[in-house]
Design a protein around this nucleic acid. Structure first.
Lengths: 216, 216
DNA sequence: TAAACAATAGGGATAAACCCCTATATTTTT
DNA sequence: AAAAATATAGGGGTTTATCCCTATTGTTTA
């Protein structure tokens, strides 16, 4: 019987080697190869023709880009995302790019094995956290309230003001910088917080950092 | 011969299990236990008395706080940091807190094993990236006031309150959490800001993030 | 071309943050 | 033993943030 051929793309060697030791305990699985960055993953996928590419997503490995390229050039190879991220935004981006499975790192190892078998048989697999996100958004789309919870909806001006707020400027200072009324700044701040469903400055700043609006 | 007892604190189960499979390949090592958050790590360290705690540092596991508590209550247990972070400030913060070893996740598995043996024999181990940071700063650090660059500049209570502030709690909420007056909390906040020469909440939060007091 | 959105600005209110003080009991350091 | 630091708490004040609203003007989109 043919084994399931896996390409493991993960740039942190210790984690990659540990992951491989976990996977090979399943006798249906064999490791076709390893990669530690995006380009290498694409190149090896082409050369080794694995059934599944397990892709860890982090700063060094731009998972969305890699997934999109893999899915376009080799649609028969399934991409299984293994990551700790589970923001709504990221989930949508990577599924849109063509990932067939999505396992959160906090899952049990057996879940990962199950996901591999599921993908191999042509189905999709999502960790419960991810399924929840998908369901949540499906319901919202249907209640046509796509304004209140889509995540890419701060306006240009709101982003500008969020940046200044997160840099530590007061509303009055920002008003003077932008030659507008403090009332306008306050309204923008209020709108930003409502949109993001954040009710304190700390959360706002952490959001700004996560989104790359400011650097630490 | 006695084996080296390891407690593995890592909240991502897949990574933890993989890591353990890597470690037990070394016949001198045995896994004393596992933990998936900070409080559990401290509790199990107390109960199981491992030689070494391997601590992954991320959002769920506030490594600096855990390290500080472990180092204070159980100085005989060595803390080995395993993380992908290697910013100068984070390295200093966690070494200040009492970590004895620091391995970057991008290292080879053999390096991690080597670090374990080194710590077991009472020495310190740092990945090359970390050593470089330490060397780079050694001259400046000796000429400068030690306290000016260290978290110990703040008292224990001040750090505790800074953490809660940076997590987004109001002074009143913090007062209720700690069963003290809001006036006391306000005084602490004021003292913290004076000591750090920071005059806005945004700066305070970014300071807390840089120092590892909270994670993004 | 209506309707929705974006940016502007104000009134009026409460809550929270921040600043200046003083003060006491306890612990730590010198 | 004396001095310094820590943690506590209060008075009283100003500034800032946040939350209700309404409203106008220009732009974008369905």
């Amino acid at each position: 019987m043919e084994k399931i051929k896996i390409l493991v793309a993960e740039d942190q060697i210790i984690l990659r080697k540990g992951l491989i030791k976990l996977l090979i305990e399943d006798e249906d699985i064999e490791i076709a190869g390893e990669a530690d960055d995006g380009p290498e993953a694409i190149e090896k996928a082409k050369k080794l023709q694995p059934d599944i590419v397990i892709l860890d997503v982090n700063t060094k490995l731009n998972g969305v880009e890699v997934t999109r390229k893999l899915a376009q050039s080799h649609p028969e190879i399934k991409v299984l995302i293994l990551t700790k991220h589970s923001s709504d935004e990221f989930v949508f981006a990577i599924l849109d790019a063509g990932a067939k499975g999505y396992v959160i790192k906090s899952a049990a190892p057996e879940d990962l094995i199950a996901a591999i078998h599921t993908l191999y048989h042509g189905h999709s697999y999502f960790s419960p956290e991810v399924s929840k996100i998908l369901l949540k958004h499906i319901n919202q789309r249907e209640s046509k309230n796509h304004k209140s919870n889509s995540l890419f909806f701060l306006t240009k001006r709101e982003r500008e003001i969020l940046k200044l707020v997160a840099e530590g400027h007061s509303s009055l200072k920002i008003a003077n910088m932008l030659f507008i009324s403090i009332k306008t700044v306050e309204n923008h701040r209020s709108n930003i917080m409502n949109k993001l469903k954040i009710d304190n400055l700390a959360g706002l700043i952490k959001y700004a950092i996560r989104k790359g609006i400011i650097q630490i």
